[in-house]
Every structure is written in C-alpha cells, then in structure tokens.
C-alpha cells in the first residue's frame, strides 16, 4: 500500500474519529482492510496510533484537572490484563471472526453513543465501602456552569472486572473502545460525564500499549506503515477537534454517525461472507 494513500486515509479516519467521538481506529481498520490490508495487520497498526491520539488529548484534559488519576490507575490494572489477553486471542483467531466481532462492537458502541448522554448526571447518595477504601472521589471546575462539581465513584468491584472486558476488546480489535469504557464509568460507577470521558481517554493509552507489545512481539507491526498512519491520525484528530469546537453542527455529526453505521454493517457482512 502506498505511503500517500495510507497517510490520506489516516487523516480522514482521525478527523471522523474526533468529530464523532468514537476514535480513529473504528474508521481506520475497515478502511485499510477495504484497501486490501490483512485485518490483523490493520489492527496492529491501528493500536499503535491509538497510543498517539489518546496521549495527545489526555494531556490537555489532565492539565485541566478533570481527569481522575486514581480512578484511571485503579481501572488500568484490569484493562491492561484484558488487552494482553485480547491481543493474544486475535493472533490465533480466524480473520472472518475478527470482521464480525469488529462490526458487532462498532454497532454496539454506536448505539451506546446515543443512549448514554441524554440523562442528567446526579451525584450518588451513597458510596460502598470498597470504593471508599479505594479513595475514588474528586471534584472539578465546570466551565459552562461556573461551579465546582463534587463527586464520588460507586461499585468499583463491578467496574474493575467489566473494564477487563473493555481492555480485552480494545486489545483484540486494535481500537480504544472508549464508548464502552465511558459506558462503564457512567452507568456502573456513577461518574459525571466529563470525568468519565477524560478518564477513559487516559486509560486508553496504557491499554493500547499493552496490546501493542503483544503485536510487536508477534512481528505484525510494520514500522514503515505505522509512520504514515500515526502522523495522519494525529493530524486528522487535531483538525477534527478544532473544527468540533468551532462548529457545533448536529447535522455534520449525524452524517459521520451514519458513516460509522455503514462501516459496522459492512464489516459484519464481510465477515459472514468469509464464513459462508
């Protein structure tokens, strides 16, 4: 595959990923396989670029003091183990299964993106002893309402093991699986939306590193291909984030969500075609 084409595809993937809030991998991997790349190689290259985009954006969020570093550190214990197991599974799985799984996860995260954001966050009235022992609480300054929001997490004993699953999927499919992580933070652990998004971003980087190591050791990562993809995704995500701030256009966002829906269905169909 030519350098220029790969670079271009990555810019578009990074851009759509940032605009839709789903991350670059979900566009990048289907696109690269459509261009003829083996899906395992696409997964391996994508997961390296996930480290780049997540670290880049996490940097800004952490500085703004919205990210909860303790929640992140506790949950990373589970996600990195998941990613190690997931990447190992992928290496010994048939390509058709990976296509189907990718499509299904894409469709699920797509639904999650719609469901979660409609309810207003309210502080949980109670905190279980285990989560209190873990000191999972915090506060952040909310710019739009000019208020300091106090919060505490709950049910960490569920959140941890569930995050192993999120890490497993991230490692298997070479994506950040941010939508899934945010869902666990929101619904299970009761974190405010801003905290769950930014903390999930931080976790994604470390999780992707664990997955990357497995693929590197297996010799699936070609640095000659990683270079254009990493630069392209970063550039696309950077521009996408800027555009997102300036242009709050719901129609544009919806258009990208339709693109993702089509990609999800397309991956499932291709996978089934490989089996039948």
């Amino acid at each position: 595959m030519s350098f220029g084409l790969l670079f271009l595809v990555s810019i578009v993937a990074g851009f759509i990923g940032a605009m839709s809030g789903m991350g670059g991998g979900v566009v990048l991997i289907p696109a690269m396989t459509l261009l003829g790349m083996n899906i395992k190689q696409a997964i391996a290259i994508s997961i390296v670029s996930v480290i780049a985009t997540s670290s880049g954006s996490a940097s800004a969020y952490v500085r703004d003091r919205i990210t909860n570093l303790k929640v992140g550190m506790f949950l990373e214990m589970f996600t990195i183990l998941g990613a190690l197991v997931g990447a190992t599974i992928t290496l010994s799985t048939g390509n058709a299964i990976l296509f189907i799984l990718f499509g299904v996860v894409l469709l699920f995260s797509w639904v999650a993106l719609f469901v979660q954001r409609h309810e207003v966050w309210r502080a949980h009235p109670w905190q279980d002893r285990f989560t209190r022992w873990l000191q999972l609480e915090g506060s952040y300054y909310d710019q739009p309402t000019a208020q300091t929001i106090q919060y505490h997490a709950v049910r960490a004993y569920f959140g941890g093991p569930l995050m192993f699953g999120a890490g497993l999927i991230a490692g298997m499919l070479g994506i950040g699986a941010g939508a899934l992580k945010v869902l666990i933070h929101d619904l299970v652990m009761g974190l405010p939306p801003k905290v769950s998004t930014t903390t999930s971003n931080l976790i994604i980087g470390v999780t992707a590193l664990a997955g990357t190591s497995v693929y590197l050791a297996a010799g699936v990562i070609d640095p000659g291909l990683v270079a254009p993809v990493m630069l392209g995704i970063l550039l696309g995500a950077f521009v996408g984030t800027r555009v997102l701030v300036r242009m709050r256009n719901e129609a544009v966002r919806r258009f990208f969500l339709v693109v993702l829906l089509v990609l999800g269905v397309e991956m499932v169909v291709r996978g089934l075609g490989g089996i039948l």
Binding site: A52, S55, R65
Partner: peptide
C-alpha cells in the same frame, strides 16, 4: 500536590507524543 501531579502527567504525555512525531517526521 494533586495539581502538580496533573501538570507533570500532562507534560509527560504531550512531550512524549511531540518527541515521537518529531523523530518520525525528521526520519521520513
């Protein structure tokens, strides 16, 4: 203290990504 930790972590992340981009771009 927590504020200082946030700043430190934020610089590590940003510095790492910028270093990586710089080396890759110059190499290419």
């Amino acid at each position: 203290l927590e504020g200082r930790m946030d700043v430190l972590v934020s610089y590590v992340l940003l510095g790492g990504v910028l270093t990586a981009v710089l080396f890759v771009v110059v190499g290419l």
